[in-house]
Simulated assay, not measured.
Amino acid sequence: MAWVSLFSGGKDSAWALHRALDDGLPVARLVTVHPDEDSFLYHVPATEIAGLAAESIGIELLEIESSGHEGTDSSARGDAELEPLERALRELDADIDDGLTGVVAGAIESEFQTSRIEAMCERLDIDLFAPLWQRDPRTLADAMLAAGFEIRVIAVAAAGLDESWLGRTLDAEAFDELEGLNDDYGVHLLGEGGGFETLVTDGPQMERPLKLDYKTEWDGVRGRLRITDAWLGDS
Rank of each mutant, 00 (worst) to 15 (best):
S39L: 00
L41Y: 06
Y42G: 06
H43Q: 07
V44T: 13
P45G: 09
P45S: 06
E48V: 14
E48G: 13
E48R: 15
A50K: 00
G51T: 02
A53L: 15
G58L: 02
I59Y: 02
I59T: 04
I59L: 03
I64A: 01
I64Q: 02
S66G: 12
S66T: 10
S67N: 09
E70V: 12
D73N: 11
A76E: 08
A76Y: 10
R77M: 04
G78D: 00
G78S: 02
D79S: 07
D79Y: 05
E81C: 07
L82D: 00
A88W: 10
A88E: 15
A88M: 13
A88Y: 09
L89A: 06
E91V: 10
E91W: 06
L92T: 04
D93Y: 11
D93Q: 10
D93G: 12
D95S: 14
D95V: 13
D95P: 07
D95L: 13
I96L: 13
D98Q: 15
G99R: 02
G99Y: 01
G99M: 03
L100F: 06
L100C: 08
L100K: 05
T101A: 14
T101G: 15
T101P: 13
G102K: 05
A105K: 07
A107C: 09
I108T: 05
S110N: 03
F112E: 02
Q113L: 08
S115L: 13
I117T: 08
E118K: 13
M120C: 00
E122D: 13
E122M: 09
E122F: 09
R123W: 15
R123P: 09
R123G: 11
D125F: 12
D125I: 10
D125A: 11
D127A: 15
F129Q: 01
F129N: 05
P131M: 12
P131G: 10
L132I: 01
Q134R: 14
Q134I: 08
Q134S: 12
R135L: 11
P137A: 03
P137W: 00
P137G: 04
R138F: 07
L140V: 15
A141C: 08
A141F: 03
M144S: 03
M144C: 06
L145H: 02
L145P: 06
A147P: 07
G148C: 05
G148Q: 05
F149L: 04
F149G: 01
F149Q: 00
I151T: 14
R152W: 11
V153F: 01
V153W: 02
I154T: 12
A155N: 06
A155D: 08
A158V: 07
G160C: 07
L161R: 00
E163Y: 06
E163A: 12
L166D: 14
L166V: 15
